[in-house]
């Protein structure tokens, strides 16, 4: 033992260093977007919904660095204003399913038996439907809008988290520390959420961050179908959709909002990786 001990602090330090590069990078990207969202009225050169018939479909110039769209709106300004909505979609669209799924997965995995069976069958049913079809039908029932989108996302998206966490909990609950907690007379809630869940969370965090990409794309798809954010609001999904018809003449209408989606997603996923590593390194 004495031989290997001094390794640990050093290894941990190295692990933190290597994850720090991803952490810093992810954090910078997100900070950039958040700054853009906060400062949108100041940094955006034009009004995002102001139409200018004289400046339709202009290629990127110094005046319009990202060009203009078919209504003559400045694409840069629209991308900047779009951060406000898309950040919200990314955060809320992931947060709700993650919370619901993690809690239900923990409960199902820990209690087992009939609770587990019922929850898992519900998950099977949800998964049996094509994701988008289910989303669309829920949103149609609730009426178009962002609120409906979040609700639909929460109702459909939790299943992945539940599965992920449940599998972890099943392994963890047979481990001695869980049995020890039981033998010491701790309440079930305490065992579930104080002892088991923190040890099962890594996968959930990392998955959530990569899930951000899917949620953003979903949001875009829903908006494209006219069920999410309503035009003329600046949202990247709508912008991509609107620019689609002009892709051969004016690539910039689609390219820049698409690129913004990629960057934001990248930021989240880098941050997620780093956070997951840090959460693990704490053990």
């Amino acid at each position: 033992m004495a031989q290997t001990r001094p390794f640990f602090p050093q290894l941990k330090w190295r692990a933190l260093m290597s994850s720090n590069t991803t952490l810093t990078l992810g954090f910078c990207i997100l900070a950039f977007f958040i700054a853009a969202a906060l400062l949108a009225p100041l940094v955006a050169p034009f009004d995002p919904i102001l139409q200018d018939a004289s400046a339709r479909l202009q290629a990127p110039t110094l005046l319009h660095p990202f060009g203009t769209d078919n209504f003559g709106r400045d694409v840069l300004s629209r991308v900047i204003w779009g951060v406000r909505i898309d950040l919200q979609i990314a955060l809320l669209g992931v947060l709700f399913p993650m919370i619901i799924g993690t809690i239900l997965g923990t409960v199902a995995g820990f209690l087992g038996g009939i609770v587990d069976t019922i929850l898992m069958r519900i998950i099977d049913i949800v998964l049996a439907f094509p994701f988008l079809v289910l989303m669309l039908s829920i949103i149609t029932i609730l009426g178009p809008g962002l609120a409906s989108f979040y609700i639909a996302m929460a109702l459909v998206g939790w299943v992945s988290y539940a599965r992920l966490v449940r599998a972890q909990i099943l392994v963890l609950k047979t481990m001695d520390f869980a049995v020890a907690a039981q033998s010491l007379g701790y309440s079930r809630l305490r065992i579930m959420f104080r002892h088991l869940l923190p040890n099962a969370l890594t996968g959930s965090i990392v998955f959530a961050m990569s899930d951000v990409i899917l949620v953003l794309l979903n949001g875009a798809a829903i908006s494209y179908l006219g069920l999410g954010v309503q035009p003329p609001a600046a949202e990247w999904g709508i912008m991509v959709a609107e620019g689609q018809g002009f892709i051969t003449q004016a690539w910039w209408i689609t390219f820049f909002p698409g690129f913004a989606i990629v960057c934001l997603a990248l930021g989240f996923s880098l941050l997620g990786d780093a956070l997951g590593d840090m959460w693990e390194a704490e053990v």
């Binding site: 481990m175 001695d176 049995v179 020890a180 907690a181 033998s183 007379g185 002892h195 923190p198 704490e282």
Partner: peptide, 19 residues
């Protein structure tokens, strides 16, 4: 039982919550 009987486990690493 919970108050008066305690258990010590086989694998010392497994028996403690790593967090």
């Amino acid at each position: 039982l919970r108050r008066e009987v305690a258990m010590v486990f086989q694998d010392p690493f497994n028996a403690l919550n790593p967090r």
